[in-house]
Structures are given as C-alpha cells and as structure tokens.
Design a binder for these strands. Structure first.
Lengths: 121, 121
DNA sequence: CGGCCATGTAAGCAACTCCTTAATTAATGA
DNA sequence: TCATTAATTAAGGAGTTGCTTACATGGCCG
C-alpha cells in the first residue's frame, strides 16, 4: 500500500510532477515528434523516454499513433482542463477566505490602535 | 538517481498528486484546522497526516503556525498561481495548434472531395 | 512538579519510481 | 529473405513514498 493513486486527477498531477515529462510536453507543444526526436535532447536513454511517454499516455495527456515504425506523439488537452478546474475552484475559495482574513486583520489593527492611543479620539 | 525532483513546480505537482493531500487542502479551504481534526476523517494515523502536512509545507502550499500545542494549518495560494500559469501557457499553445490542425484537416478534406468529384467544378 | 494532552520524529517495511542494459517486436528496403 | 532502423518490453538496482508502530517533544492544568 504505497504511492499508487489511480484516480484520474492523481494520474495527471503525477505525470506533470517530473521535469523531463513537462519538457517533453513543452517540446510537443511546438509540434508532434517521434520518440527518438524526444529522447535526443534529454541525455537519457530511449527506453526511459518510452516509459515517460507511457506515463503521459496513461494520464491521457498524449496520444501515440503507431504510423509505420515511427510512433508519433500528439497532445491532448482534456486532462489539463480537469486540473485547471480543480485549481481554479480551490483558489477561488482560498482567495475568498484571505479577503475575509484581511478584513478581520484590518479590524483588529484598528481596534488595537484605538486601544493604544485612547486620547487620540 | 530516482524519483526526487526538487524544483518548485515538481514539488507542487507532486504534492497535489495524492487524493489524501488534496482532501486535506479541500478541508482547509473551509477554514484552518489542527492536525488532529485533519486526521480524523481520513482513516489513517496521525503521523501519516503529519507527513502529508510536511509534504504540503515543503511545496509551500500551507503554513503551520505552532500556537500552543495545537498546530493550526492555513493555506497559501502562490504555488497554485505558478501551476496555473504553467498550465494556461501550455494549453494556449496546444489549443492554437489544434486549431491549425483543424484547418489543415478541413483543407485536406475539401481537396479530397474535389479529387473524388472533379466534374463538380 | 508530574501526569496528560496534541503533535512531531524515528525506524522499519512493502510498493512504487526512474534509470539502466539486454532482448524483443515491427516495418523498411536492398 | 535478411540486415537495418525505430521503438517497446523485460529484468534488475538505487532511491522514494506512504504507511505503520514506538518513542520523543513541548505546552497545559491538577
């Protein structure tokens, strides 16, 4: 019972939690590429890249079309939308809370100032 | 040389790649809480929660203020902003590419139709 | 001060991650 | 058909993760 969370959101977050995989996605942003082209700039072996691609594929972040002996990769945006939605939802809540907190802090500060200098009234 | 990526973005994504940690953050969205309060609904031990909180703290996602013997946790939004920025940037690029691809596909389809029915000119 | 709290740290274990090299699959072209 | 090219799968190792059960820390109240 260890690090294996299998729900979709966890898979996507996990896939994005690796600099190599993010770099691969960045590379794919500017156009589809073969596994070999992706492996070249990263100073890791071809199989390592293959495994990274499998992780990205499991997370639904890329498609691998086996055309001839060249497997070209393309990107899918849907999982990112889900991630974005999660983040936006929670950030909205938190920001709301922070504004409330800010207000409360301002109130406190004001009250404290009034206490510190009661003659200033 | 294994699973340890130490850059900030990786830390945040990794921290979010666990359902328990996301649930903790959700719980904290509705107000600060102590470690004990957070541990209760999750059916895991207190130390386990403590470790999850450490991960979230390392990623900069929460603050732990040691007030008395109750350590209350509060949320920070800055890391989420970074994550959002990364996602938005890349999704924008991909969407752009998809629109280009769509166009190309429409062009191809049209040309093919013209080839299939040359007399329709 | 000494016994309770709530919490964090340490040690240990099974499962997983990411990398490697070696063997395998699959399509191309002489 | 057989060597070549491109990529994945298999096997194995160093290091992490996430959980557990003890143990240690530090503030509270009798």
């Amino acid at each position: 019972m260890a690090a294996g969370a299998t729900d979709e959101l966890s898979l996507v977050f996990h896939a994005l939690a690796d600099p190599t995989r993010r770099a691969i996605l960045s590379r794919l942003s500017s156009g589809e590429a073969t596994a070999g082209e992706l492996a070249e700039p990263f100073a890791i072996s071809r199989p390592a890249v293959s495994q990274h691609l499998s992780v990205l594929e499991s997370a639904g972040l890329i498609d691998r079309n086996a055309r001839a002996q060249w497997r070209t990769c393309t990107i899918r945006t849907e999982p990112l939308d889900e991630v974005s939605a999660w983040i936006d939802e929670h950030r909205a809540l938190w920001t709301e809370r922070f504004e409330l907190l800010d207000e409360r802090l301002r109130d406190l500060k004001q009250k404290q100032q009034e206490q510190d200098n009661p003659q200033n009234d």
